[in-house]
């Protein structure tokens, strides 16, 4: 996982003096260099590689084999790009991603917004590890939502696609009520600080001309912060790669595909290898 790209700050939040943070336990400083371009340096003065994309500065402690993934949909000029900010969560970075891939918790954790009893059933959907792109994809995911987005007034069945293109990033595509046929793009970029502590940087690319930027930020912060108390109270703290002490069902298939993909690549930072 050392060779993967990780988000370490908002481009819009860069300062000359910089921000001291951690990446997989390594102290790093993220700052604007003399020319204003971002720089990331380790405590021993090593400059790390940089990518500026999706509103964030991305870096890697190792030697990335691939360029950072792309989100072609996000390039559409009419989309509103939303820097949601950062929230620290005392959980495994992998658990933060796994929770983002889950719809079955909507009625209980995001009650009356993303889900509501009695609409709790999870219909069959498709999940696969796409060999060519080396990404996890879940498609045809449908769920009833009382308030599907800030701009939605009443309940509808919303369709989602989930994508995991790097170990601690996930991209969610969801039905866009004002633009049938288009997808809203909601991302969760996770910076692994340690195996059980992470900074989460949500980011969105939406079609929404009517809602203020602040409302969009607040809506996403509201949703994500509702998950925080869940993430900090799962046992064990690290994500099990052996489900022997758990009871996954068909509704958990995206979670299982994500864990399989982590296992396949040996992406075990923040994972528990043996069930306990």
């Amino acid at each position: 996982m050392i060779d993967a790209w990780y988000p370490v700050g908002l481009i819009s939040g860069l300062t000359r003096e910089g921000r001291e943070t951690l990446l997989m336990e390594q102290p790093i400083t993220v700052r604007a260099g003399k020319t204003g371009k971002p720089e990331v340096v380790t405590a021993d003065g090593r400059s790390l590689p940089i990518v500026e994309r999706f509103g964030h500065v991305w870096t890697s402690l190792g030697t990335p084999e691939k360029d950072l993934f792309t989100i072609p949909e996000a390039d559409h000029p009419e989309r509103v790009l939303v820097d949601v900010g950062v929230v620290r969560v005392k959980c495994s970075p992998l658990r933060a991603v796994e929770n983002f891939l889950d719809i079955a918790h909507f009625p209980f954790v995001h009650t009356d917004i993303l889900g509501a009893e009695p609409h709790t059933e999870v219909e069959k959907y498709d999940v696969k590890i796409r060999e060519e792109e080396d990404e996890v994809w879940a498609t045809k995911v449908k769920f009833f939502q009382p308030q599907a987005a800030k701009s939605a007034e009443e309940g509808i069945t919303t369709e989602y696609m989930y994508r995991v293109p790097s170990p601690t990033s996930s991209v969610l595509y969801k039905t866009c009520p004002p633009r049938p046929g288009e997808w809203d793009v909601i991302c969760l970029f996770v910076q692994p600080l340690t195996e059980t502590l992470c900074d989460v940087w949500p980011w969105m690319a939406l079609f929404d001309e009517d809602t203020s930027m602040t409302d969009l930020i607040h809506f996403q912060q509201l949703i994500f912060l509702q998950d925080r108390s869940i993430l900090e109270n799962q046992i064990p703290a690290r994500l099990p790669l052996d489900p022997g002490m758990e009871t996954p069902t068909r509704a958990d298939l995206t979670s299982i595909a994500y864990r399989r993909w982590l296992k396949q690549h040996g992406y075990t930072y923040g994972a528990e290898l043996v069930a306990q």
């Binding site: 489900p243 996954p248 069902t249 068909r250 958990d252 864990r259 399989r260 296992k263 396949q264």
Partner: peptide, 20 residues
């Protein structure tokens, strides 16, 4: 049937020393 599905889902991941 749904519990057989659940067994399939669990086995797809399985213990750490197998790859299904």
């Amino acid at each position: 049937p749904d519990l057989i599905d659940a067994l399939e889902v669990g086995c797809l991941l399985g213990p750490i020393d197998v790859w299904v």
